[in-house]
Design a protein around this nucleic acid. Structure first.
Lengths: 250, 250
DNA sequence: CGCTGAATTGAGTCAGTTCAATAAGGGTGG
DNA sequence: CCACCCTTATTGAACTGACTCAATTCAGCG
């Protein structure tokens, strides 16, 4: 029993911003140590989510944003008629739930793609703290602004790019995100299914599968199930950009 | 000369939040009168933009966000290779430039679609004021969050919807935005070209033109150049939703 | 070790594009 | 005010990238 308690305490201890390996990427990145204590004190720990478990569901009352500690999640929005749209993947250090601030409920469900831990940040506390800490406020504005930018890139991808370009862009973006988090940009594991990738990129599963096979036969990547090895990054970048179409320039 | 000065002063006078007809939709919507004075004092007036004139260009240093007073604008992002993507239209009371906070430069150019006036809100001043005024801060968070939501809807449109559904959704969204601003939701003028619409919706100009013609022959709308009359709103709504496709649900 | 969902591969179809040609606006200068 | 030019819009015909349908194969898991 003391053993279990000890381990439990240890887990809670390592779940502090001051000792978190993600602190240089996460929301409190710009904070002084003393301010980080303040920030840390408003955070609520959460039991790890299992694969497939929701962090919250579409329509739940908005109370908090969440920072991903480990694992990954997907955001899924269900339309009236029951068809789903996967609008985002979230990796460690990224902030989940920012699009819920506006309407008091979350606009999509967030589902764990693997065993995943998150830090819960109650938004009213965060807002109050951001009043006192300009650095934190700035970081929050920047996080939202960054997501706006990424959305614009995604719109471009969806409205202009071919299936090949979409897959290549997707792999490059993932690779870059892993790199920034200290993992290999050349060798990683996809936590999402082909169906998820297709849904996210606006492609049929079959198309995703076919194109990954072709990339493999072109020696650009080696794919085995969900393991990906990028063999020729320059070629992949070229694939993501090639033959831009000129769809009525404004 | 006194005449001109007089008129000039009159223009400046009417450009105050307290007397602005948009105040119930705009950023200071939640502010008490005395706080609105404070907000009003940080705003910089701008000479009206002529059609085609840029408010700022992609890559310009980020300094301010802008509230549209009258007219309309488009956001255009140019990729390395010179192809453009139209990522947004802005109508009166909407906030322009929020996606520039993150990286110190604006990620796209903002171009007037017609004669357009805006209020410039220097972001450093806005940030400081938002420290003192929780209502203002909340409104700023909500504005950004709302834009995130709208981006998600746009992604859905681009990855799931047919050309017909896209056009119908576009017209409905415009109609709704006009309605909220006190204009007729059934009769309005498009300030953007067919090419702009196509670029925004990820369609060829020809497709936009063809579908508008078909909607017209179906008596759903009457289109004459840039004048639009919605004849059958329920039908238009049905067109925007019909026959949802089931692209690999997550 | 067998079962069930996930992934791959093939064949045929179609929505929306491209290419092309014509018509309609909308400024501008005489 | 009108004629001209150039941009914008419409319409037609042919083509194609990605989808759907279908049939295996593979992988993870109880």
């Amino acid at each position: 029993m003391p053993d279990i308690m000890g381990r439990h305490r240890a887990i809670l201890n390592e779940a502090h911003c001051q000792t978190c390996s993600l602190s240089s990427l996460c929301l409190p990145l710009a904070l002084e140590l003393e301010h980080m204590d303040q920030f840390d004190s408003i955070i609520r720990r959460r039991a790890p989510l299992k694969k497939g478990e929701p962090l919250f569901r579409q329509g739940d009352v908005f109370t908090s944003v969440f920072a991903v500690r480990s694992g990954s999640l997907k955001q899924v929005t269900t339309e009236g008629n029951g068809s789903d749209q996967l609008t985002n993947f979230y990796l460690p250090s990224e902030l989940v739930g920012l699009d819920g601030i506006n309407e008091a409920t979350y606009p999509g469900s967030i589902i764990a793609l693997e065993t995943t831990t998150v830090c819960e940040i109650p938004f009213d506390r965060l807002d109050l703290l951001s009043e006192q800490l300009p650095e934190l406020r700035g970081q929050l504005y920047r996080s939202m602004s960054k997501e706006l930018r990424e959305d614009r890139r995604m719109m471009r991808l969806l409205s202009r790019k071919t299936a090949d370009q979409r897959l290549a862009s997707f792999l490059i973006t993932l690779s870059e995100r892993f790199r920034r988090r200290g993992y290999s940009p050349y060798s990683f594991r996809l936590s999402m299914s082909r169906a998820d990738i297709g849904n996210y990129l606006g492609l049929a599963v079959e198309t995703v599968s076919r194109i990954l096979s072709r990339f493999q036969s072109q020696k650009v990547v080696a794919v085995s199930g969900r393991e990906v090895n990028v063999l020729d990054m320059p070629a992949l970048i070229a694939l993501s950009e090639e033959e831009e179409q000129e769809l009525n320039s404004p």
